[in-house]
Design a protein around this nucleic acid. Sequence first.
RNA 1: GGUCGUAUGGCGCAGCGGUAGCGCACUUCCUUGACAUGGAAGGGGUCACUGGUUCGAUCCCAGUUACGACCA
Length: 862
Amino acid sequence: MPATAPEKVSVEGLETKWAEKWDADCVYSFDRNAERANIYSIDTPPPTVSGSLHVGHVFSYTHTDVVARFQRMLGKEVYYPMGWDDNGLPTERRVQNFFGVRCDPSLPYDANFVPPFEGGDNKSSKAADQIPISRRNFIELCEKLTTEDEKQFEALWRRLGLSVDWSQTYQTISPDAQAVSQKAFLKNLERGEAYQSMAPTLWDVTFRTAVAQAELEDREQPGAYHRIGFDGPDGKIFIETTRPELLPACVALVAHPDDERYQPLFGKTVTTPLFGVEVPVVAHRLASQEKGSGIAMICTFGDVTDVIWWRELDLPNRAILGWDGRIISEAPDAITSDKGKEIFAELAGKTTFSAKQRIVELLQESGDMMGEAKPITHPVKFFEKGDKPLEIVSTRQWYIRNGGRDENLKEKLIAQGKDLAFHPDFMRVRYENWVNGLTGDWLISRQRFFGVPIPVWYALDADGNPDFDQVLTPSHELLPVDPSTDVPAGYTESQRNQPNGFVGEVDIMDTWATSSLTPQLAGGWISDPEKYAKVFPFNLRPQGQDIIRTWLFSSLLRSEQESGELPWSNAAISGWILDPDRKKMSKSKGNVVVPAEPIDNHGADAVRYWAASARLGTDAAFDEGQMKIGRRLAIKLLNASKFVLSFEPAEGITEVTEAVDQSLLLNLAEVVRDATTAFENYDHTKALEVAEQFFWNFTDNYLELVKERAYGQGDYTPAEQASAAVALRKALHTMLRLFAPFLPFATDEVWSWWQTDAGSIHRAAWPKPEELTQNLDASNLQVLELAKEALFGLRKAKSDAKVSMKAAVESATLVSPAAVLTTLRLLEADFKAVGKIADLAFEEGEAFSVENVVLAEVEEEA
RNA sequence: GGUCGUAUGGCGCAGCGGUAGCGCACUUCCUUGACAUGGAAGGGGUCACUGGUUCGAUCCCAGUUACGACCA
C-alpha cells in the first residue's frame, strides 16, 4: 500500500484533528446489537461536576481508557459511558451561591421562576439573602448549572482522548436517576432490607443532618479533663470527664469489672452533683482502668461508647441536646429537685460550649470540682465535610441492612468480594476490613433538602399524628416522586397534614444511596432494560482506593440485594497523584495542577504516557519529565514511521528472507505475546514497557543496520531490499497497534498515512503473534541481538576514535565468539554499509569487539 | 493504636533465589540525506537496617526504622 507521509511531521494539532474525526466517524459508539459475551462494559466513575478537575482525574481516567481501547481492539464491543455526579452537598452549595437561592421542599413548584442573579462568585452567601424555592425548581437550576460544567469536562476528556461513547451519559440527579434510586429503595423496603428506627444518631449540628459511619472522620481536638465528685455511700467518688455539660444527662457511672477499686460500688448508687440525681454504678468491659480515675460517667449521649453502654446495660435515656446542638428546654424527668430544675432552666438554650462554662462555674462554686481543668488533646468524631464535632441525638431515621448487624449477610458480602478480581489484588483487604468493621446498618436518610427524596408518606391518625408504621409507598411506574408535592394513592392533596390524612417524608437519601446504583444508572435498569441485560454485570469498575469503603462497598451491597450477583467482575483501583514533594494533591493543600496545563505544554499523548506509566494501586508523582519522554516517544514514532514508509519493497516481492529481518519479526511476536498477557492481567504498564523497549531497539539498532539495504543502493538484490522493506512495514503495522491504547493520536495519524482503507487504528484488530511468524525460521530469533552486540562494538571503536559514526573505514576486524561467527557473516553486507567499512574481516574471540580499525584518509577542510 | 502499601544510583521507576537494570539528569564525542523535539560512547548503586532460611538473598521469612494511604 502506498504511503503519503507529510514532509515535516509534528505532534502539534493532532488532538483537535483526531478528536473531531473520531466523533464524526463514531469510532467509539457502542453497538447494542452485539452479543453479551462479546461486550466489555465499564462502570465509569461519575466525576463531581461542581468540583474542579485536577490531574488526578486525568491519571485515573487514562488507566481506564487504555483498557477500553485494548478491549475494543480485541474485538469487544466496549460500553464506555460517562456519568456526571451532580447530586449532593457540593452541587447544592454551588447552586445556592451561583443563583442566590435555597431549596425548601415545602414550597410549590413555580414554572416561571427566575433566579435573582446568575454567576455568583461561588463564595458562601448568607442563608437570609437566599430566595427559598421548591425542590423541583432547585433541581432544575442544578441541571442548568451543571450542564455548563459537563461541557467543560467533556471537552477536556475529548482532548485527553478518552474513548467514551458520548451518546451514553447520565446525571445522578436526573429524573431517571431519581427513579432508579427510589425504585431500588422501595424494593429494599419490600424485601425488609430498608427499615426505620428511632435511635441515637450521629448528628451534625451545622448541617442539621444525620451522618453515616462511612462519612465519619476522627480529628484530634483540644479538650480538658474536669475532675468531678459524685456522692457515694462512703464519700466522694471522682470521675474525669471532657464533657461536664452533659452532667444532667448522666445515667450511670461505669468502671471495668476487674477494677478492684470500684468493685465494692457495683450495684450501689451515687448522686450527681448539682442535679442530685441518683444513678447506679455499673461494670462494663469498655471502661478503661487507665484513663482518668478509671471510672466514668455515662451520659445520653456524649460519644459512641455511651451509646453502646446505654444499649448493652439497658440504661434510661435522658437526652438533653436538640437538633440545633443546644440544650433543650425541658429537663429530664429524673431531675426532680428544685435546685436541679433551676440550674437546668439556666442552661436551656445554651450551646454546649457555653453550657460547659456555666456548669464548670457552678461545680467550682459548690466545691464538686477538684482543681482546674486539665488540657488534653483527643480524637473527636466529625462529619467529613463539617467543622463542628458531631453530637448524638435521638431521631427517627431510615436504614438499609448492610451486614453490620447480620453475620450471614456479612459473610455473603465477603464471599462476593473474593469473587471480584481486584487490581491490584491486595486492595481486597481494604474492602474486607471495612465489611468486618461495620458496627451498624447503613443510615441512608438525610435531613437535607437537595437530593433524591425518600419516596414514602405516612398516614396521620385522628389526632393528626403520624403513624410511622403505616408507610405509604408509590407504585413503581409513578417514579420519581416527591412526597412533598405528590400525593399517595387513595388520598387527595387536601388531606396533606390533616387528621386521618397523610404527611410526606421530608428526608432525602444519602448521595451514596444513588451513587451505589451507578451500574443500574449507567446500564439503563429502568430506562432501557434491553441494554441493561447486555451490559450488566459490568466487566470493569475503575475507582480510587479512598472510596472502596463507600462506593465500591455500597454498589456491591445494592447489587447483592437486588439481584444476588456482583455488579462487576473486575475492580481496577488507581493510586493518587502526589505533588513533587510527595504530598497528596488536594484542593485544600493548594497544590492542585489544572489538567489543561500539562496537555497544553506536552500534548495529550505525552500526558497519557505519563499516566499509563504508573501501575494500578500505586501513587505517582506529578512528573513533567515523564511527559517529555512520552512526547519524545510520540515524535519519534511519527518520524520513524515516515522513514519506514519511505521504503517501497521491490515490485511484487513480499517475502522476508534475510535472517536479521526474520529475527526482528520473531522478536516482535514475543513482544505481542507479552503485551497481550500483561493487558489481560490489567498490567498496562508492562504492556507499554515491552512495546516501548522494542521500539527504541528497533529505531536505534535494526533500522540503522538495514536502512542502506532498504534504500536498495549498492550490491543488494531486489529480494534482499524487499526483505528489509517488508519487515519494516510489518513491524510498523504491529508496533502502531501496540501503542494505540497509549498514544491514540500519534498512532492514528501514522495509520492514516497508509492504512487508508482500514478506518481508525482504534477499530483495528489487536496484533497476534501468528501474523508475524508465518514462514519464518524460528532459529533466527537471536540474530537481532547478535547484530546489536556487533553494532555496539563498531560504534565504540568509532566513539573511542572520536570520529563521526559516518566516518569511512578502510578496514576493520569484527571479533566475536566462535559459535555465532557464521551467523554474523550473513550480515556482512549490512555491517559494511552501516559502518562505511570497505574491507571487513571476521575473527574468533571471547567477546564482541571491532579491532584493527583503519580510518580512511580524510581530506583536510580548507 | 490497627490494617495495607512503599523503601533499589542525584531524581522517577523496572526487576529477579545465583553477586543489579531502564529513563531523566551528568561527562565526552558526533553538523548535512527520518528525527538537534536528534545520534553515539561513558561514569555513577555494599538494592533502608538487624536477624533467620538457603550452598548462595536485593529478591523468601521475622523484627526494626522511615514515608504514604485508609481505618480507629
